[in-house]
Computed example of a mutant assay.
Amino acid sequence: MAILVLGLVIFIGVHSIRIVAAPWRAAQIERFGPQAWRGAFAVLSILGIVLTVHGYGLSRRYPVPVWLPPFWTAHITALLTAIAFIMIVAAYVPGNHLKRALGQPFVTGIAVWAFAHLLANGTLNDIVLFAVFLVWALIELRVENRRDREAGVVYPPAQVSRDAVVVVIGLAAWAVFAFWLHGVLIGVRPLG
């Protein structure tokens, strides 16, 4: 569990610098340059991911049950993660209604993904992993939305054709992950 927590501290910590220390971040970018900042950010992010994944895998060997999710939560989780994938894709396709309505569809998608996994997983390592991501995403969402309001950000008009692209790509990515990659990478096949 310690490696999982260390990985989360590094990954979430790096991704929270802009939230808790925006002036310091700006000073470091000014001091070292944007390329050096991105490089350090990438290295620490990868380190955090590797430690989180490794620590999660180790902690799954000796699970500590906290609660037993009812069988039907797996179905809700599947639906919510499909929605989360669509939201995440919406962050990268300009001119769609989700981006216009949510402002931060990527972070919103992470929050939905984490919440969905909390519903269907009841071990301590699952709760730690997904609760940390959920809390971080909710804080990040609030901060980013406030920044957008203060900056007067207006998202471009949306087109239904762009919405269709978002939904098709999001559902395709979700299907590949749910039916194949989740089993390969995580060792659990949520949809059989």
Rank of each mutant, 00 (worst) to 15 (best):
I12W: 06
G13T: 05
V14T: 09
H15K: 04
H15Q: 07
I17P: 02
I17V: 15
R18W: 14
R18C: 02
I19C: 01
I19R: 05
V20C: 01
V20A: 12
A21P: 01
A21G: 13
A22G: 00
P23I: 03
P23H: 06
W24R: 08
W24H: 05
R25H: 10
A26Y: 03
A26M: 09
Q28E: 07
Q28C: 01
E30L: 12
E30G: 13
F32R: 13
F32H: 14
G33C: 02
G33I: 02
G33T: 02
P34M: 15
Q35G: 00
A36I: 13
R38I: 04
G39R: 07
G39Y: 06
F41R: 01
A42Y: 12
V43R: 14
V43K: 11
S45Y: 09
I46P: 00
L47Q: 03
G48A: 05
L51K: 00
V53A: 12
V53M: 08
G55M: 11
Y56W: 12
G57T: 04
G57P: 01
G57D: 08
G57V: 05
G57K: 12
G57A: 08
R61K: 15
R61C: 02
Y62L: 13
Y62W: 04
Y62P: 00
P63F: 09
P63A: 11
P63I: 08
P63M: 12
V64S: 10
V64K: 10
V64I: 15
V64N: 09
V64L: 15
V64D: 12
P65S: 13
P65T: 10
V66Y: 07
L68V: 14
P70T: 10
F71N: 00
W72H: 11
T73L: 01
T73K: 00
A74V: 15
I76V: 15
A78I: 12
A78K: 03
L80M: 13
A82L: 11
A84K: 08
A84T: 09
F85R: 08
F85L: 10
I86K: 06
I86H: 05
I86D: 04
I86Q: 01
M87S: 10
I88P: 00
I88F: 08
V89L: 12
A90R: 05
A91Y: 15
A91M: 14
A91P: 07
Y92A: 09
V93P: 05
G95I: 00
L98I: 15
L98G: 06
K99G: 10
L102M: 14
L102N: 07
Q104V: 14
F106T: 13
F106C: 04
V107N: 05
T108I: 06
T108N: 06
T108P: 01
G109R: 02
I110E: 14
A111I: 11
V112R: 09
V112P: 10
V112Q: 09
W113L: 05
A114K: 03
A114E: 00
F115R: 01
A116M: 03
H117M: 07
L119R: 07
L119Y: 11
N121V: 08
L124Q: 09
L124E: 07
L124W: 11
D126G: 10
I127D: 01
I127S: 02
I127W: 01
L129C: 06
L129N: 08
F130S: 06
